[in-house]
Design a protein around this nucleic acid. Structure first.
Lengths: 303, 303
DNA sequence: TTATATTATAAGCATAGCTTATAGTTGTAG
DNA sequence: CTACAACTATAAGCTATGCTTATAATATAA
């Protein structure tokens, strides 16, 4: 009995969950398995222990006295196990983190604010990598990827967490100096100057914006400048070179200082969704949480 | 990490064993699996935890600091689990037991001594069943079967314990009164009277005894009486009806009182081996142990 | 009565958990 | 030095466990 029960302790883990919820279907959801699996495991466990643990009562499961005793015991035991595993696997907060994101985000948002983070958390070293691709986190030893776009979740490996943390509109922006030379009152006025676009704009492309604003004639436009990343595009625009499309969070400071303006206040039809991609089972999870919480607060404060 | 480790706690169980022994092969022996399985489980666990637990050192396994910490934690946790399971599954000593054995044993040995047991353990109720077959313990709700013979072990289901607890010789016996009417000086003298045999004597049959004693002419013997069980055979013999073959432990009291004698002190070539057959995982294991220990002591005291 | 929300059961598939076989390593004895 | 013993590590393959989906059963509410 005892030997047989201790031969498959995983059943006890499922039991703790089902007993806590007093519901197989809730346990199934928590354990990410089917209700039928839970039902069969509990049947197996009751058989192994030759003891009834649940009283079936219509749509819920009351616990027998034995069930209650076993719940108490298993909870204590698993708490000990979890604590023990934590002690040997989870790193303390002090240490290093490797962050990967787009060149635009790292250059325009993260690097300017990193000193704030480092002042607040001097024991956490941040290493920043920029890339336009979705690299393999494990291969590149990346602890956290900050990614943008509409398909991040679908393109993220199922073993990783993909945590949405907000979204921003995208607008056409140009320098204030340029508005002093030319009038921009409606969308079609943008066709009077250069339009800076990305090599791979994805769904944040100029044609979508023009269609969204019912602007005719953009197909015949000749003054296109194509660049590799948004920070390069913004660099060109800051030097009076026409318009580019940019997410508002990236240019908050330049909008405040007046360097950049949004003459046409019509957002792109597609918003930029932001995600953290990380492994929740990483030993660095404690440190990761510190960083992501700080970033989320900074993002909220400046938006 | 933690989630993944807690998804398969059975690995931790194997770990506790391997870490305690600091040896995969010893753990394998204790767990009744192969060394290769242990090796692979430990590799899997180390991978799940992304932590080295063992330092391979020639023919043994030293524990890392993490390994030591995890050993400590797992031992505490499993002790809790075992205690918890014990509490809900193992019955206390007071209660009932169902014992099954041969009619001869129950009638001649057990029933006469049962009052002694009951006086000593008034809180244990014994229900006795006699049968010549090896019944299914589970189906018949038998807690303990006491079985005799040379092939008990082979005929016992592998899920049950088969515990040898001694053996006895078998002798030809008759009443003292009969020896006053007839002389029995050598084995062939037994052919002058009735020989009581069992319907199913197994290997404890008269022909084997006569062959063993190099006795001629038993094949022509005409005075055979066939009965169903040894207690019936002994009943006939106690009433001066010839000889029967009986295990010595069954007739100790009658030999002492002189009712029965063994004129020819040559044992049967096959001894009677005695076994307890029970489920070591039975909730009644504590009570079972009380009974079997008492029985063993009684058997030793009277032999 | 039907609809809903749960648990229970059956049948089938995939993979986890073993096995056997073998390779690799170390220590010891002759 | 070689041979051997005693371990652990790894690979390949098989079987049983652990799931899944589909459906049955049951209780409750409308």
């Amino acid at each position: 009995m005892i030997k047989r029960a201790l031969k498959n302790i995983n059943l006890l883990h499922s039991f703790e969950c089902a007993a806590r919820h007093q519901s197989y279907s809730k346990a199934a959801a928590e354990l990410c398995i089917s209700q039928a699996a839970v039902s069969q495991q509990m049947r197996q466990l009751e058989e192994n222990l030759a003891t009834q643990l649940f009283l079936r009562k219509s749509k819920s499961m009351l616990l027998t006295q034995q069930g209650k005793a076993l719940l108490s015991g298993t909870q204590q035991a698993f708490k000990l196990l979890e604590k023990s595993i934590n002690e040997i696997t989870v790193e303390e907060i002090a240490g290093s983190l490797t962050i990967s994101s787009t060149q635009a985000f790292t250059t325009l948002w993260l690097m300017p604010k990193l000193s704030d983070f480092s002042a607040q958390y001097p024991n956490i070293n941040i290493r920043v990598m920029s890339s336009a691709q979705f690299e393999d986190l494990k291969e590149q030893h990346i602890d956290l990827a900050i990614r943008f776009g509409p398909r991040v979740k679908e393109n993220t490996d199922s073993s990783l967490n993909c945590e949405y943390f907000g979204e921003d509109p995208v607008y056409p922006v140009c320098s204030e100096a340029l508005t002093k030379k030319m009038d921009f009152k409606e969308p079609k006025d943008l066709l009077k100057t250069w339009l800076v676009s990305l090599e791979n704009p994805g769904c944040y492309d100029w044609p979508s914006w023009f269609e969204h604003t019912n602007t005719q004639g953009y197909q015949e436009h000749q003054q296109w400048t194509e660049v590799h990343s948004t920070d390069m595009a913004l660099n060109a625009v800051l030097n009076d070179h026409g318009f580019t499309l940019a997410a508002r969070y990236l240019i908050i400071e330049q909008l405040k200082s007046g360097q950049l303006v949004m003459p046409i206040n019509i957002p792109h039809p597609n918003v930029v969704k932001r995600y953290f991609v990380y492994d929740e089972n990483s030993p660095k999870i404690a440190r990761l949480n510190v960083f992501t919480n700080w970033l989320k607060q900074e993002m909220n404060a400046t938006n």
